[in-house]
Simulated scan of single mutants.
Amino acid sequence: MADTERWQPMVERASLAARKAGEILQDWRERFTVSEKSRSNLVTEADFAAEKAIHETLSEAFPDHGYLGEEGLSENASTADYVWIIDPLDGTGNYVHGFPYYCVSIGLQYQGRMVVGVIYDPTRDELFTAAEGCGAWKNGKRLQVSGTTQLSQAMCVASLPVAGDPNHPALARFIRALPHAQTIQRLGSAEMNLAYLAAGHLDAFWSSTLKPWDMAAGIVLVQEAGGTLSNLTGGPIDIHACEILACSSSTLQTELVPILKQD
């Protein structure tokens, strides 16, 4: 069976689920402003409602699959061959403030490897999809990483801890990398960062504080768009660890690793 035939039903169903969840998030977003004291509860309700819609849409088609989600969803996640890894809202802080950089993220793991990734940006109606051996796409247009090879020409994004200790290693890495990169940003959504890297808008992204659902879908997008993935020391990536280094080229990865692993 060709890769396209094998994974296309999963991509299509995950795309449907992501769009449903995106509609829910946008509906809830209109119900509050950032000044409301109760906004955290509303965000929680939006998270749960979106995750429920995703789970129902996927499980209707794939009842024997496993499920793992940020909002406590866990069904056969350690025993099933196929496991859906779900983040109904990646970029909560941005969402609360109305900053349009957040997304719905759905990844599919098969026997330990990520094979399908779907990321939906409801503010721009941009659907990023990828499947093993099938390439990466945005609204039907093929994606490719920028191919940038020099850190001095690279737009980088780093995850930093929220309200973290000023001595946190992530801050030290950020400061060490600053003199070397053309620019370094913190944008607040790891999955959007990975989608944008796959689309060629960013050249490198790293983090040491992620959960599986923060990177599962984006990993497939970056792989299928021609990017490189590793942990911060250049070793194999593991979605159940917390580290990721995604780059537009292996040359850029080689330049970044010594800077990032000095802790």
Results as ranks from 00 to 15, higher is better:
residue 255 E to I: 03
residue 17 A to M: 04
residue 128 F to Q: 05
residue 157 V to T: 13
residue 234 G to V: 06
residue 162 V to Q: 14
residue 46 A to M: 08
residue 257 V to M: 07
residue 231 N to M: 06
residue 32 F to G: 04
residue 82 Y to A: 13
residue 47 D to T: 08
residue 254 T to C: 08
residue 250 S to G: 12
residue 149 T to F: 02
residue 215 M to F: 06
residue 2 A to Y: 14
residue 13 R to H: 01
residue 20 K to F: 11
residue 177 A to Y: 11
residue 11 V to F: 05
residue 161 P to G: 02
residue 88 P to Y: 04
residue 37 K to L: 14
residue 240 H to R: 11
residue 17 A to N: 08
residue 119 I to M: 02
residue 169 P to L: 04
residue 183 T to A: 13
residue 8 Q to R: 13
residue 51 E to M: 07
residue 132 E to S: 11
residue 57 T to N: 09
residue 110 Y to I: 09
residue 215 M to D: 00
residue 14 A to I: 04
residue 88 P to T: 07
residue 111 Q to K: 15
residue 91 G to S: 00
residue 104 V to T: 12
residue 11 V to G: 01
residue 67 Y to K: 03
residue 1 M to K: 12
residue 113 R to A: 11
residue 125 D to C: 07
residue 243 E to Y: 01
residue 211 K to A: 11
residue 199 A to R: 08
residue 167 N to K: 13
residue 132 E to K: 11
residue 136 A to R: 02
residue 90 D to E: 01
residue 5 E to C: 04
residue 55 H to D: 13
residue 166 P to A: 07
residue 64 D to F: 11
residue 9 P to V: 00
residue 76 N to D: 15
residue 68 L to F: 14
residue 61 A to T: 11
residue 195 A to D: 05
residue 126 E to F: 12
residue 54 I to Q: 06
residue 238 D to E: 10
residue 86 I to M: 10
residue 7 W to H: 02
residue 50 A to V: 07
residue 60 E to Q: 14
residue 134 C to P: 09
residue 158 A to M: 08
residue 253 Q to G: 07
residue 254 T to F: 10
residue 228 T to D: 11
residue 104 V to K: 04
residue 14 A to N: 00
residue 209 T to L: 14
residue 250 S to N: 11
residue 114 M to Q: 13
residue 119 I to A: 02
residue 107 G to H: 08
residue 51 E to G: 08
residue 242 C to R: 14
residue 160 L to R: 10
